[in-house]
Amino acid sequence: MTTLDLALQKDIFISFFRAGMLGYGGGPATIPLVHKEVVETYGWMDDEEFSDILAIGNTLPGPIMTKMAGYIGYRVGGKTGLLTALAATILPTVIIMIALISVLINYREHAVVQGMTSAIAPVVGVMLFMLAFNFLRHSKRDLGWPVAIALGVISLITFELFNLHPAILIGALILYALLKKSPSKKEGEAA
């Protein structure tokens, strides 16, 4: 790609701007909105690739939203796409924060602000739950219910009961999948 595809860059900007401006509750809460833009609205990638990106993002430290935006921008629109997606994710919300903070300090205890904050939490919950269900349904297709549910239960126990960091389990699953000998005869890795 030698010439700059401005229409594509505009789409990248709009998708991450929309996700960022509608995302309440920090980066992780914004994941369903990014999924909606990237997979459903623009069709830049399928569910498989999106969940791989999310998985790798979760095994690495640092904020998740900028990792997702930067990588997806890069994957879809090259180095310019990376900058476009990052700018769309970060700049508008930081500018709003700097500009509005003195105004908001006066209205912090105001009932309207409190009401808006508490009304958004259940909606974010529903969006996250729908995405979770979507991934679980895909797992059933690849692994069948017994394996998918077993892995889900193991994940739940390690995350919640043992309080192990998710990166440890995901890292272990990645290593297991990559190091275990393939059952198929043809071991040829596609390069």
Partner: peptide
Amino acid sequence: TALIRPAIAILLAVLA
């Protein structure tokens, strides 16, 4: 890809 997806689903469900 197939093996990590249930773990990601549970992560999202916990967040929900």
